[in-house]
Design a protein around this nucleic acid. Structure first.
Length: 260
DNA sequence: TTCCATGTTCCGCA
DNA sequence: TTGCGGAACATGGA
């Protein structure tokens, strides 16, 4: 379940269970997940320790020696820590084995994720043209206004374009627009400044709120539309009808009554 | 069996 | 040039 808040939680989980521990070996259980050559990947990590963890958008980076491990979780990626004699989880694709019998598995049922190496997060961000991270302190209303000024098309598409803002996916884009009372297909150049400000504030608040609540879906506040992603459901805000459509190629839920 | 899924990329069209 | 629809990728759950 990985959008920005989930990946932030994974980053903290990774730090808690992997930082400072000696990597005795690395098991690649399914090479299809690997963006690097297996031998090179294992050689770069084996015998070293992870010393720093960083997140940018939906990407997680962990430094080991001279290179950085890069994790992208796709649609179904997750991390799982376990100890001997427990077996790896069912969909473990790469397992980092640590001294003392602890393990950290990268699991990903659908294999849309990526595990590879990069010389540095900054280089990765540049090469892959990732936009600013919206939770970062440097991401201000001013930044967001500037982004919106040179953008046409649906507001939902802007929120989900990783080269514009890095980290927002389908669920939190919908949630942001729901709480901002804005229709997901509304063109960016037809939003008032007050609406732009509302999107900015709600986006940051929602992402932070979910991180603080540790990201599990059931823990999201009751007022969130995320619990009502179903055609014909009742809007938790105004009692209107929840409608389903497709925007930017993704299933989109919105309240037909209060989102305009 | 059929449809759907929290993501990304590439192609083609307007 | 920009934006976006559609398909493809791989797999399991309802």
């Amino acid at each position: 379940m990985p959008e920005l808040p989930e990946v932030e939680i994974y980053a903290r989980y990774f730090a808690e269970h992997a930082l400072g521990q000696k990597i005795t070996s690395v098991d690649v259980l399914d090479e299809r997940i690997l963006g690097a050559r297996k031998e090179e990947f294992v050689r770069a990590l084996k015998g070293r320790s992870f010393t720093t963890v960083r997140r940018h958008g939906k990407h997680l980076f962990a430094k080991a020696g001279k290179s950085w491990l890069h994790l992208h979780f796709g649609m179904s990626g997750d991390l799982a820590h376990y100890r001997d004699p427990d077996p790896p989880p069912r969909f473990a694709r790469v397992v980092f084995n640590f001294a003392g019998g602890a393990h950290l598995a990268f699991e990903d049922m659908r294999l849309f994720g990526v595990v590879d190496l990069t010389p540095s997060p900054d280089e990765y961000i540049r090469e892959h043209r990732l936009g600013p991270d919206p939770v970062d302190a440097k991401f201000t209303l001013r930044t967001f206004r500037k982004i919106a000024e040179r953008r046409r098309g649906a507001i939902k598409a802007l929120l989900m374009s990783q080269d514009v803002i890095a980290g927002v996916g389908n669920l939190y884009a919908d949630e942001t627009l729901f709480q901002s009372s804005i229709h997901p297909r509304r063109p960016v150049d037809r939003l008032s400044d007050a609406e732009l400000r509302s999107v900015f504030r709600n986006l940051r608040r929602i992402l932070r709120e979910v991180i603080v609540r540790r990201g599990r879906n059931a823990d999201h506040p009751r007022r969130y539309v995320i619990h009502h992603r179903e055609e014909g459901a009742r809007c938790p805000r105004c009692g209107g009808e929840i409608r389903r459509t497709v925007v930017f190629g993704r299933t989109t839920y919105f309240c037909g009554k209060h989102q305009r």
